[in-house]
Design a protein around this nucleic acid. Structure first.
Lengths: 153, 153
DNA sequence: TGCAAAATGAAGCATAGGCTACAAATTGCG
DNA sequence: CGCAATTTGTAGCCTATGCTTCATTTTGCA
């Protein structure tokens, strides 16, 4: 049910096979699913670090969503082991959450730096990175890092 | 309820104001909402161009989703004026749909080219671009284009 | 030509992520 | 100290995107 072109007439490197293409789209969908989680843990980490606490209302305001939306998403974060919270006591990251936040922040900074190096205005780079970062694979991240190193040298 | 820091102690250019940040996240959310539309339109254009017709089953297989999912999304495309179709006769893009497909394809190619130029392996670049492209603003696109021009010269 | 396989589409269900409206708890200030 | 404002949390609703299942239509071949 997946091989209507078993003889593979097309050049492998040119047109992507439909399996390949399906796989790419699948990966993008997965990345998108984790994007919200990544945004929340990074923001919570920021708030806790700079202000000592992350309250649902602050999180909602920063993300530009209704507080009820933030609360519901925070519940998912807790369910998935990224955060803990007690009513009226703010939200805190678990070890797993802090670890994720750390990786996300590093990736965000790297993406912004690459964009600005390529000539994208600071403001735009920050805004675009907010979406782009979630889809940058480790391999691409490594290439970005190497590129910046070359450039600095 | 939006000025818990009315004196603005922080340097404006350093930390983003919460309004700014909320706006960025909002933009990213919007971009994500159009991502699926863009993927479908581009794929349909590909299929029609190379094979003469875009059948729901083919679209589903390429995207790696169930055919029912594809049919439902195609219905939305039709509702939004990007495509037309008659039962058992395949899907075709409207003028609006073709125009979008054209823009999306150009953007995709540009993103892939920038990534490979930065040293990202072809395969990875294609896969990552599938997600990244939806969040690249016109300004960033322009910077990418200028970067490639500089590089070629 | 007629029937089986394939394609199509509809229905029903789930999850994620939004929203508004309302209820309950907490805080803080007069 | 007590009440009003704020914060928090709950409930119900919506859309988008998936999925599986089942019915229907088309197609193609024996």
């Amino acid at each position: 049910m997946d091989d209507e072109d078993p003889i593979r007439l097309s050049a492998p490197a040119e047109l992507p096979g439909e399996d390949t293409q399906a796989h790419r789209f699948g990966r993008a969908r997965e990345a998108q699913a984790t994007a919200v989680t990544e945004d929340y843990v990074e923001l919570i980490d920021d708030l806790v670090t700079t202000g000592g606490e992350a309250r649902p209302t602050d999180i909602a305001r920063r993300l530009g969503v209704a507080h009820a939306t933030a609360i519901k998403t925070i519940a998912r974060l807790k369910r998935d082991g990224f955060a803990v919270s007690r009513p009226y006591r703010g939200v805190f990251l678990t070890e797993q959450g802090r670890e994720l936040a750390c990786r996300v922040r590093a990736r965000h900074r790297l993406v912004v730096e690459v964009l600005t190096t390529l000539g994208v205005p600071e403001e735009v780079a920050e805004a675009d990175a907010e979406g782009i970062e979630h889809f940058v694979s480790p391999a691409t991240l490594a290439a970005f890092s190497a590129f910046l190193d070359r450039r600095d040298r």
